[in-house]
Amino acid sequence: MATKLIANSEDESGIDPARDADKRFAIDLARAFGGAVIFSFPMLMTMELWWLGFYMNPYRLALLMFLAVPLLVGLSFYGGFEETMSVKDDLLDTFVAYAVGFAAAALMLLLFALIEPGMSLDEVIGKVAVQAVAGSIGAMFAQNLLGSGAGESENERRKRGVRYGGQLFLMAVGAVFLSMSLASTEEMVLIAYKMTEWHVVALSLVTMLMMHAFVYSVEFQGEEQSIPPDSPVWSVFLRFTVVGYAIALVISLYVLWTFGRTEGMAVEEIIKAVIVLGFPAALGASTSRLIL
């Protein structure tokens, strides 16, 4: 089958198809690298994240790196590098993105003098690994944002994205991305400490209201709609806004736990911190379809 595909491409283009494809892959890699850097800037330049690299619980870091694999596979399915035809292709894209994420993280940390001689292997590997997760998602995002697209398969992808499960997945990715950029900072917990119960209730209401507005503007803007225009408001609210907010809250809790922010906190304070982080996470969730 492979040889047949090569034969086909030779028939249809005048230039050497192998070299052309090589060049395109190099461009894709450069674009992915740019995406990895742009999307992980907030994390690369946050000191708590450099420190987390060496003191965060190694089990949790390993789990985060592992969970990023299905997330990237899913992102590749809904976009990513080259149009993907099979799970194998998605896995290939996933590890290409991860390689780019590692390279971008290592290079930027070196440039910022955050990796230096005298640092132990533990410290260097930890620092790079945390950043590589965000970098790899950024690398995958870049293909969607800046990507050259791929004709017919672009429409195929969009169709995939429109299905309900796909919608929820993309919401989750948006939530992961924004919450990871913010969860590591001291401020999340500090804000939670400052807020009273009334503030918390108000924030969660505002969050849902803003989410709902985003869901509406995103859903009824494009030509492909997953929600019929005549569906009642409460249906959209329940199926997208409330479910999306729940996803955002669960992801906020997971990310806070991963970064050790829930350590030693009372349940009430954890809930507050989850709702605080849930605000950016929910907005990330409801706008991720704008990006993807």
């Binding site: 492979a2 090569i6 697209g149 791929a150 429409n155």
Partner: peptide
């Protein structure tokens, strides 16, 4: 959809893609 009107024909992953992906997997 804001994409280049240049459809891609060859679907077979390049050898480079495999190499980079292997590096990623190992990392």
């Amino acid at each position: 959809s804001g994409t280049e009107p240049k459809p891609r024909k060859e679907k077979k992953p390049l050898i480079w893609e495999w190499i980079v992906a292997t590096v990623g997997l190992v990392l």
